[in-house]
Each structure stands twice: as structure tokens, then as C-alpha cells.
Amino acid sequence: MRLRLEVNGERREVDGVWEGESLLYVLRERLGLPGSKNACEQGECGSCSVYMDGILVCSCLVLAGQAEGREVVTVEGIAGGDELHPVQEAFVEAGAVQCGFCTPGFVVATHDLLRREPEPTDAEIREALAGNLCRCTGYEKILDAVRLAAQRTG
């Protein structure tokens, strides 16, 4: 089937989409946007987190056709051009990136938290990131990164 949607501010049209595939598959395999990661395909890890119509979702749990006509923002669209978003900068500086596989999901989820709550408490940070898994950092540096980003943007 044909799918029309807006991705990172650009209107895209994709042909040959299989009715049973996920938005994550469309983004990675059909639109060449590999920023959103595919790790679990069951909503557990958050590495595929994107915005759909401004709402944070796991793109692996969105059926492609459900995204028809919707506005999707992926990690590639969080910052303008070649710049890094302050959230991304904070992750780099705080050492919150090791293998980096979880990072795109954490960046989008942190972005979502800080626009809702510019000065989050530690409890709020933990709650907001509860749907994102990291196998490398042990989370402490990720918490540091979120606090740093909040300081700079809040």
C-alpha cells in the first residue's frame, strides 16, 4: 500500500508498504532513517521512540497505516541541520553514551520530558525514562546528562 506522512517536517510518500509492518520498519528500511533503533520490537526498550503528532510513542508498536497523514519526528529531526540539540550535547558531555544503541531513544524521551517539565526532579526523570533500557552505562551518567540538559535549557 501507499503511505503518506510527514517526517521531520518533510512530506514523504512511500510505496509498497506491507500492511503488517511497523512505523519503525518504514522509517529505517524504507525512508533511510536508521536513527530510531530496532532492538526488541515489543515496546520494552524504548530505543525506537519517536514523536507522532507530538506524542512520545514506540514506533515499533505503531502499525504503518496508523501513521498515515501523521507528523512524525525522529531523533534525526530533534536538532536543526548539523547542530546537536542541547540534550544530545549533554549526553555526549556527561559520558552517557557508550555503545550508543539506546541513545536515540533516550534523547527523544528526554526531549519530551524537558518540554513538559523543564526542571524535573530525580523521581520525575526516572519515571519519564522508565521505558528506555540501557545495557552499558548503568544509568547514572544518563541521569547526569538529563540534569545537565535541564540546567542548560530550563
Binding site: 515496546g43 510513542v57 514506540c58 508498536l61 519530551d112 519519564a128 522508565a130 521505558g131
Partner: peptide
């Protein structure tokens, strides 16, 4: 329930 991403959907 789940996580923010799950509760949003």
C-alpha cells in the same frame, strides 16, 4: 501501566 510510551498509546 508500562512506561510513558505505552501509556500514551
Amino acid at each position: 501501566v508500562g512506561s510513558p510510551q505505552i501509556r500514551n498509546r
